[in-house]
Design a protein around this nucleic acid. Structure first.
Lengths: 143, 143
DNA sequence: TTAATTGTTACACTTACCATAACAAATAAA
DNA sequence: TTTATTTGTTATGGTAAGTGTAACAATTAA
């Protein structure tokens, strides 16, 4: 799953949890609603659980719930929870170590891509889940 | 080849052409210098030729040369030449058309990613090939 | 004790990717 | 005109990554 696909799947699930709060929703139900495979969804929701964005409960009548208001959840923390961003490896091949300026130029791009990553995360930090809910006209039950 | 790998390979080739200007360099020579397969390199250089960043000459003693000063070449135009950026398709599955808010949320992300793309290109527009040459201490023969 | 649910691993299957090869078209030089 | 060389483009074999699904242990409420 690409980073963007994971992010949008996660956000869809979170939107649904906002609408249905505080009733726990299990992975099968969410899967049917948002059209993402239940198993894959559990993988994502498990990461969101580790990131303290949702709380999971096992057993009968278990499932997932939001841990905090959509106003306090931003896209960057969702992204961080689901993606271990390894700062662009750039396919830096060992065989090109002794080549003409390759190392220096690679370093240049490593720095550039890291900068871009920071810019993107800054932008996502500003976008709250509540903004998104409003934009797509979903009534959240977690105010 | 990923976009970032293509970009860095292209830039390495262009740096080498700046250093060796105005003598045409063929794909085999450049390949040996920068450690990128000659065939793949021709694919990239062919795109840069279409983008009027290099000029190619076939036949004996042919090869590639810069068409303009590194001061007038920026990373964004290199990127545009080698990448037909199709504005993030986001794996939007047909089966999720009638699903709960999927279309709206997808559109939100489509817009967000398009914005990010614009930001990145703005940033790359500001970086000239000459800046990079200076940073990695390559003497350009095309002033 | 039971039934349901998460969390994690595994597994085919497909797709994408990468390095390389191959060869036609073009062209400068002999 | 002929020859050698180089680009431009397509094809290919092998490898890695991604995708959707299944399976099942661990957990937990009823």
């Amino acid at each position: 799953m690409s980073a963007s696909t994971k992010l949008s799947a996660s956000v869809k699930a979170l939107c649904y949890l906002a609408e249905t709060y505080p009733v726990p929703q299990n992975s099968r139900i969410i899967s049917e609603k948002i059209g993402v495979n239940a198993s894959k969804l559990r993988q994502l929701l498990s990461l969101l659980n580790n990131g303290r964005i949702v709380k999971s409960e096992k057993g009968a009548a278990g499932g997932f719930r939001l841990t905090k208001s959509p106003k306090k959840i931003d896209l960057q923390e969702i992204y961080c929870a689901i993606e271990d961003r390894k700062a662009f490896d750039l396919h830096t091949n060992d065989s090109e170590k002794n080549l003409w300026r390759s190392a220096e130029i690679n370093n240049f791009f490593l720095g550039l891509f890291a900068e871009i990553q920071v810019d993107i995360e800054k932008k996502m930090k500003k976008i709250k889940l509540s903004d998104l809910l409003q934009k797509v006209e979903i009534q959240s039950n977690y105010k």
